[in-house]
Computed example of a mutant assay.
Amino acid sequence: MKKILVTGANGQLGSELNVISIKYPQYEWVFADRTKITLDNLELLKLQLNEIKPDIILNGGAYTAVDKAETEKDLAFTINHLSVEVIAKYASENNVKLIHVSTDYVFDGSSSVALNEGAETNPINVYGESKRAGEIACLKENPDAIIIRTSWVYSKFGNNFVKTMQRLMQERDSINVVNDQIGSPTYAADLAQAIVYIVESSNWIPGIYNYSNEGEISWYEFALTIKDFGNYDCKVGGIPSSSYPTPAKRPEFSLLDKKKIKETYNLEVPDYKESLKKMFI
């Protein structure tokens, strides 16, 4: 029986993988939180990997506090870059299949068309820089790895934009949401299913892939859809990013082109509204 190691077990993606793992009893699933897989302690990480001895690694563990990363650069780079290097090297040396999850924040937001996997990267914040460094290290140490870039992840688990909006729309009469950052949300359950689909496929094609739900929207439009689905009586206004300053800059446009993953793995990618509805069931 092949053993699948999932890092970041308590995160949104890890939690969704846990939910669907029961449909795949042919694998031994190891869901590792930060005590089982210590991404900020590289020597311990090497020992832990050797102890677990996985056949497949789904690396969803990451430092994701985008604003905090601006002042915790070393920690962000240790987790998002150096630990990925260790995992990729281990996978390469032990013939382990590796799927590593990355982000749309590797882009600077200057594009006006959906970004494909070959688009030039130029991160504009520390989080994006650390994740891009992780991608480079991953493919350098292990050219057989698969990297999946995703964006605007939400789920019934953990903290995310959808759950924040649901809460605020019930607590307040009105809220403002930025309307000049464009992309597409990703329901973590869809991403989890896509990852397992690749694992199950006999067609292992290394390299970078993009995955998010279909749709080109702003955070403001996303909030309006959440309001509609929840029937919330809250006024939602659109504001420019300049009116909502944050320590880390965000890309203005980071819509991902999903053509490669759809064609390579014959994947159907749901529309964002279709997936968002599942948060309200």
Score class of each variant (00 low, 15 high):
Glu85Gln: 13
Met279Ser: 07
Leu13Gln: 02
Ala65Pro: 00
Lys273Thr: 05
Met1Thr: 07
Pro270Lys: 13
Leu13Gly: 02
Val6Ile: 10
Asn231Arg: 14
Asn231Met: 12
Glu93Ile: 03
Ala119Ser: 15
Ser151Ile: 03
Pro185Asn: 11
Ala119Lys: 04
Lys97Ile: 00
Tyr244Leu: 15
Lys258Arg: 11
Ile79Gly: 02
Glu268Cys: 00
Leu168Asn: 11
Asn122Ser: 15
Val106Lys: 07
Glu274Met: 00
Pro251Asn: 07
Tyr24Trp: 12
Val113Glu: 15
Val269Asn: 06
Thr35Asp: 15
Glu214Met: 12
Val153Asp: 01
Pro206Arg: 08
Leu45Thr: 04
Ser201Gly: 09
Asp190Leu: 02
Ala223Ser: 11
Ser92Asp: 08
Pro245His: 04
Thr71Arg: 14
Lys68Tyr: 11
Leu98Ile: 02
Lys278Trp: 08
Phe107Asp: 02
Glu28Cys: 12
Pro54Lys: 06
Asp40Ala: 11
Tyr27Asn: 08
Val126Ser: 06
Glu85Thr: 09
Ile147Gln: 05
Phe157Ala: 10
Ala248Gln: 10
Ser151Ala: 12
Asp33Leu: 07
Gly230Met: 14
Ser275Ala: 14
Ala65Val: 05
Asn116Trp: 09
Phe222Met: 10
Gly158Arg: 10
Arg34Ala: 12
Val153Arg: 03
Ser184Arg: 04
Leu42Ser: 07
Phe280Tyr: 13
His100Ala: 06
Leu82His: 12
Ile281Met: 11
Asn213Thr: 05
Lys3Pro: 00
Tyr265Ile: 00
Ile198Asn: 02
